[in-house]
Simulated assay, not measured.
Amino acid sequence: MAKKTVATLQTGKEGRSYTKVIKMVKSPKTGAYIFDEQMVPNEKVQEFFKK
């Protein structure tokens, strides 16, 4: 199943223009840390981490 996902993301030039970013965020309810994972365009990576 992972091969299908990778194959669909890398078709043409569009697949390489996205980056998977992971940010650790503290939950306001429990105080525990959770991970926020998203696929964002390469030019928006810095904006993702500034939020």
Rank of each mutant, 00 (worst) to 15 (best):
M1G: 11
M1A: 11
A2T: 15
A2D: 15
A2Y: 13
K3Q: 14
K3G: 15
K3C: 12
K4L: 13
K4Y: 15
K4W: 15
T5E: 07
V6T: 12
V6L: 08
V6F: 01
A7S: 08
T8I: 12
T8V: 09
L9C: 07
L9Q: 02
L9F: 13
L9A: 06
Q10W: 01
T11K: 08
T11Q: 13
G12N: 00
G12R: 00
G12A: 04
K13H: 06
K13P: 00
K13R: 09
K13Q: 02
E14G: 10
E14K: 01
E14F: 01
G15P: 01
G15E: 00
G15C: 00
G15K: 00
G15S: 01
G15H: 00
R16K: 04
R16P: 08
S17L: 08
Y18K: 05
Y18R: 05
Y18V: 07
Y18P: 05
T19E: 12
T19K: 09
T19Y: 03
K20F: 12
K20W: 06
K20L: 02
K20Y: 06
V21L: 03
V21P: 01
V21R: 02
V21H: 07
V21Q: 03
V21A: 09
I22Q: 09
K23T: 03
K23P: 09
K23D: 10
M24V: 13
M24I: 11
M24S: 14
M24K: 12
V25N: 04
V25D: 06
V25H: 02
V25S: 10
S27N: 13
S27T: 14
S27I: 11
P28S: 03
P28Y: 01
P28W: 00
P28Q: 09
K29T: 12
K29A: 15
K29R: 11
K29I: 14
T30G: 06
T30R: 03
T30M: 06
T30F: 01
T30W: 01
G31S: 06
G31I: 02
G31F: 03
G31R: 09
G31H: 05
A32T: 05
A32L: 14
A32C: 13
A32Y: 11
A32Q: 03
Y33V: 09
Y33T: 07
Y33P: 08
Y33G: 03
I34S: 07
I34T: 12
I34K: 14
F35A: 15
D36H: 02
D36R: 05
E37R: 15
Q38F: 11
Q38S: 11
Q38K: 10
Q38V: 11
Q38M: 14
M39L: 15
M39D: 07
M39G: 07
V40L: 08
V40F: 05
P41H: 00
P41E: 05
P41N: 02
N42E: 03
E43I: 02
E43C: 05
E43Y: 09
E43H: 02
K44F: 04
K44A: 13
K44Q: 10
K44M: 10
V45N: 06
V45H: 10
V45S: 13
V45W: 02
V45F: 08
Q46T: 11
Q46I: 06
Q46H: 08
Q46C: 04
E47Q: 14
E47I: 11
E47Y: 01
E47W: 01
F48K: 09
F48V: 08
F48N: 02
F49L: 00
F49C: 05
K50V: 04
K50E: 14
K50N: 07
K50C: 10
K50A: 13
K50R: 04
